[in-house]
Amino acid sequence: MIAVIQFPGSNDDRDMLFAMKTILGAEASLIWHQETVLPAKTEIVLLPGGFSYGDYLRCGAMARFSPVMGAVQRFADAGGFVLGTCNGFQVLCESGLLPGILLRNRKLHFLCQNTAVRVERSDTIFTSRTKPGEVLWIPIKHGEGAYYADTKQMQRLEDNGQILLRYCDAEGSVTEDANPNGSLHNIAGIVNERGNVFGLMPHPEHAVEEGIGGTDGLKILGSLLDAALARRKA
């Protein structure tokens, strides 16, 4: 069972549900932010994109105080699988489940475009359906997506192999030109040290159908589903 957390101001909650239920055939439901516990059978928690609480403070800064986030924290601490996209990534950073922070895009504009991201590791539960070095096309749409952490933290991310996706060009080269928002080290997505919490700015739920954004997003969402099924069998 997949829990898609719904904050007031979440936008991609129903799209996440659509990707998981309609496209991938998984069992999934929306969980309201006022809930203090997750459904007993929860195997995956998804934090969708959007503008939780309007993002009038820092993005994600209010959502971390939602009652449901305590439950998400406990779920993650117990090794549960958590994935946050866009605003969900911001919430994960704000609540300390992932290191670093997302700053305003370097030229300050909101940006909606298809982006190429290179898969750095395919030996994780979020990328098992990909090959290392594979280029995925997944759209971004955000105003605050420039990943930032201090030098020491960046070194740790690199040393631990926590960076799973980097912005790249069509050939897979990680270049400054291919960096849409000014993220350090072209970071598009990172995982926590334990490997069970993943945050990314691109929207895999918007790349799940041929003809509507392509299907590269399924490789990520599908990997996660595989991991949950494997755990269920174990």
Binding site: D15, F18, H109, F110, C112, P139, K141, H203, H206, I212
Partner: peptide
Amino acid sequence: VYRQYDQRVQGNTV
């Protein structure tokens, strides 16, 4: 102009 707008949400944009 249009890259500043979310063109994707609701997942229907062909």
